[in-house]
Amino acid sequence: MTMSLGRRAVGVPPARPITAGREAGEMVAEGVCAWFGKRLVLEDVTLTMARNEVTALIGPSGCGKSTFLRILNRMHETIDGAQLAGTVSLNGTDIYGLEQRAVEVRRHIGMVFQRPNPFPAMTIAQNVLSGLRFNRLRVANPDEVVEEALVKAGLWNEVRNRLKALGGDLSGGQQQRLCIARALALRPSVLLMDEPCSALDPTSTRRIEQTIGDISHEVTVVIVTHNMQQAQRVSDRCAFFLAGEDEPGRVVEEGPTEQMFGNPDDPRTRDYVNGQFG
């Protein structure tokens, strides 16, 4: 109690639980900095990821996009020596607030990784339900949850007859969609995707881009991508990250995708989106 009083005194909104799923959330990052050990890798990033929009984080390798993404669901802190500054809020609640538990935060902010990482020893259905299991959430109708999530991820038709097959037996593209289904089964408000197609073939990539379009009406999507066409195809807004030599990554420019690609303010953005470097 004293703790929250103290926090109010410095102007932080009172503690309240993160709004539970079923609808997309708005994420706001303010003045985010990140360190690994003593090395500053990300400096002063302020970015709003609006409800129901797809925000693409673009930029050359090593400019802090993935680090920023992992800060958005508190995965950053799982790395030894990782530190951060600034605030990140979901629907107005600071996810790094002292009263917030990281496991709870991650439940509402799902993540899909660069390499498909289904649990190889679990069946397809178990993979989809694993998030519910980890959080001890019971559902009356697990079969429906499995179907719904797989449909959303665009995988249902391919696996409907072999839900008991192992997750590791699927092809790479299918595994990645299984990972998306697994994240969606928890009904997150935000879905973070870290180069979800970089290990996949063009057909699988297209399917996943389709999926992103389909789900964006119910979940806010933040996607890191190296593929400029992909950023153009799937995103509503873009943020361009750039790091100078021996300098931390910063956001050079952000704005509606159309403008970022058509008429960027910063010459560096123009060069990058036109493939001049990176």
Binding site: T78, R106, R115, F119, P120, S130, G131
Partner: peptide, 27 residues
């Protein structure tokens, strides 16, 4: 234990004890 599987579980809201039970030990 593959880091990818640990991170998958963590990102789904698993506690450390859960990661041990459902990822580390089965592996």
């Amino acid at each position: 234990t593959p880091v990818a599987e640990r991170e998958a579980a963590l990102s789904l809201g698993a506690s450390r004890a859960r990661v041990i039970r459902d990822v580390v030990l089965p592996f």
